[in-house]
Amino acid sequence: MEDYFSDDDYYYSDRDSLDGLENEDSGPQWASKGPTSKVITKESLLAAQREDLRRVMELLSIRVHHARTLLIHYRWDVEKLFAVFVEKGKASLFAEAGVSIVEHQDLDVRPPQTVMCDICIEDLPSGETTKMDCGHCFCNNCWTEHFIVKINDGQSKRIKCMAHKCNAICDESVVRNLVSKTNPDLAEKFDRFLLESYIEDNKRVKWCPSTPHCGNAIRVEDDQFCEVECSCGVQFCFGCSLEAHSPCSCLMWELWVKKCRDESETVNWITVHTKPCPKCHKPVEKNGGCNLVSCICGQAFW
């Protein structure tokens, strides 16, 4: 997590954070630990993710990186994604998530011998350049540097095209290929980030909070406020990842725990000076500028 939130000015808390805040009004419906939850081991993580990717690829006839971009945008909620597809259509589904599928209309006779890269302002043989799905073409050196900066900045899941105001998310296979040529360790890190997104961005899946970590995650089928039990024996609240605390609400429990740790000052500060991001629910501080804020997850809100 430290890759994402290293700056203490951002007042993010970890994933065991204030997720409970927005649940305050809705009044969680408690369910007992039942058969609606499933333990996902390290080994089955990849398979579970592949299954969701496959469903989306088949339904929409798209390639894996587009499916992943859509799923990350919809927090791995396949049903929600399908609902948006039915309601708003493919074009708006794709545009919202930054997926651009261009029908390659450039039937130009031959590709030009050299291409000028607008980033480094060099003329290069077209073989040393890469055109992304959005149609923007830059040289491989510039793409590689861009990918390295973004991966190191913790933004692997949404690496945007380099063109100004282009919202397209870069093809993960291009990222992987180019980065691994100069920086194989970082390419591995990139793959790990993508894999873990299935857990960290998925509202139905959470890491088991055991310490030391057992390596498992839990997936719930429908009720996000149930208490679950991992195969390692740990029981926890799926809503807040703290120890099981029904019938107390997640917010009250969290405040109680914080109070016990004598951090009530911090809690007050956070509730007064931050707003939770509507997408990833992390508290984001307003500390400059005016209206619009955008969270590191990419969501902008007012």
Binding site: D7, D9, V284, E285, N287, G288, G289, C290, L292, V293
Partner: peptide, 27 residues
């Protein structure tokens, strides 16, 4: 000046770079 000038500048007095601010942009 922006309405929140004093608060913001006070927050930056340890020499914080504007790139470390989480900006809320104007319309």
């Amino acid at each position: 000046r922006p309405a929140d000038n004093d608060r913001y500048v006070k927050n930056c007095r340890n020499g914080r770079s504007p790139k470390e601010t989480r900006w809320w942009f104007h319309d």
